[in-house]
């Protein structure tokens, strides 16, 4: 009996444009809060970007292998002349590897903290909006609409935060490198490497925001429409 009745109407839909609009505005209206959540992403990505661009700049300077530059590099505690073979350089290489794994460890930790931060902020946002979510469900929203809205929101947030983080991380590193190595940085600027790093950072930051929002979005979607009726708070 139910099938006969329900087959009559069209589907229930939430067009992507509408979803984008709603989630974008949800962010705007809670701008202060979004900013705090986003700042986690900004910091983590700024750190990531700063490590990557510093590696790229130093690497490109080292590859030049000019004595004046090598001197500057050594003054900043960086091994040079790796191209020349010998026992000393093997040792240096080992030290570099160790340094690298330390960096990876730090980056992973900061990114992990960032995901946890996003998840936490999104969970709060879900709890805060239980009535709004319940209302949407009363109006006929499917679980998938709610998931879509929250994931979009987090993705926007992540994208904006990541972009800011990339700019900040790069700018700081670039300024520091200018202080340390002067004009050489500009002469041997590893544009391709930096651009590539920025691209990776954008993907990493945005996907982390998406991952962090998954559990909260799922929880929001599972909320019962009757929650909308709750009159307290």
């Amino acid at each position: 009996m139910s099938e006969k009745r329900l087959a009559g109407g069209r589907e229930i839909v939430l067009p992507m444009s509408k979803a984008v609009e709603i989630s974008f505005r949800s962010l705007k209206i809670r701008f202060g809060r979004s900013l705090i959540t986003t700042s986690g992403v900004i910091l983590a990505i700024a750190f990531l970007m700063s490590v990557w661009s510093s590696n790229a700049i130093v690497g490109s300077l080292r590859d030049v292998n000019k004595s004046e530059i090598n001197l500057l590099l050594q003054k900043n505690g960086i091994e040079t002349g790796l191209a020349e073979s010998g026992e000393a350089s093997a040792e240096a290489q080992a030290r570099m590897l160790e340094e690298e794994s330390k960096q990876t460890w730090l980056i992973s930790l900061s990114l992990l903290v960032c995901v946890v931060g996003i998840a936490n902020a999104m969970l709060m946002s879900v709890t805060e909006r239980f009535r709004e979510i319940g209302t949407m469900k009363c109006l006929g929203a499917l679980d998938s609409f709610i998931v879509k809205l929250f994931l979009l929101e987090s993705t926007f947030q992540g994208f904006a935060g990541t972009t800011a983080g990339i700019i900040i991380g790069f700018a700081l590193t670039f300024l520091l490198a200018l202080l340390d190595y002067g004009g050489y940085v500009l002469d041997y600027f590893p544009l391709n490497n930096i651009a590539e790093s920025a691209g990776y950072a954008l993907v990493v930051g945005t996907s982390l925001s998406l991952i962090g929002a998954m559990l909260p979005a799922y929880r929001a979607a599972k909320m019962e429409p009757v929650e909308a009726m709750r009159s307290d708070t």
Partner: peptide, 27 residues
């Protein structure tokens, strides 16, 4: 007898809800 999709359909088209605290979407 209804599954989640059909329930949403029912709420969307057959039932209108008015709440004590209005529950308009603030944005």
């Amino acid at each position: 007898q209804l599954d989640a999709y059909e329930l949403a359909w029912l709420r969307c088209r057959k039932i209108g809800y008015i709440f004590q605290s209005f529950n308009l979407i603030p944005v």
